[in-house]
Amino acid sequence: MNRYLKLVNFEFERFFRFYLILIGITILSEIIGIIVKSKTYLNRAHQEINVNLMPQSEFIEQFGKMSIYNFSQSGWFMGPIALCIVTLLIYVFFIWYRDWFGKNTFSYRLFMLPTERMNIYFAKATTIILFVLGLVALQILLFPIEIQLLKWLVPSEFRIDMTVPEITENLYYLYLLFPKTLIEFILYYGTGIIAVFVIFTAILFERSYRLKGIFYAIIYVAVSILVFLGPALFDAFVLEGYFYTIELFLLEIGAALLVLAGAIWVGNKLIKHKIRV
């Protein structure tokens, strides 16, 4: 346990500088974005109302009021989030492959540590999860700041105030990142965590068997997905809707746990007996 925590700390620090840069980009982009978007809106209002002499009510009818929603559909908001998501997705792979890079292969050291090798696996997974949660938390902290900023920048007659839950509900796909209930949180993030484990085990297949391993990894991932979707597919195509939603839901959770257990079990076998430095 102790060495697991030290490994988490170690892995965390290894990416921390880069992580701070991501955080910096996100904060800067969103703050600048709010300002730019507000200014653009107000400039247009000024143009239409004061220059083109459009009545205020007509302007609002035509262009709508300014809200965080407008901002959240812009590149200022989507850009950094997409950047963070892509970076972390890449890092899910890089967190392993970096240990094999260069002449100074750190994998030798890692796999010669006097601890269960699975701790390395868990530590890397934990690090990824912490990074994801950290960014989500950052975003949740940024919303109130942005709400306040908008209040300063845009007069109330041109503004719709939204609460944080109202914002996150209207984010389309991104609402997955900000679930409303604990159950949803567990479902979305649980699925995400299982996906990370499955990818990790697939990477270990490649690291153990190299070229042949890519083939094994693809088969392994396909099987995992099939098992995960198994109950739903079976119910839809074979039983044609035999189960109640709640039953299906429980079966799905069972399938998900099965996939997770499989990833850990296979991962343990590979990292212990098959891995090559």
Partner: peptide, 17 residues
């Protein structure tokens, strides 16, 4: 895992970051 406290390996390239 305990063996790594009893035997160590020094590869031909350094194994530290």
């Amino acid at each position: 895992k305990g063996s790594y406290e009893k035997v160590t390996f020094i590869p031909d390239a350094i194994t530290m970051l």
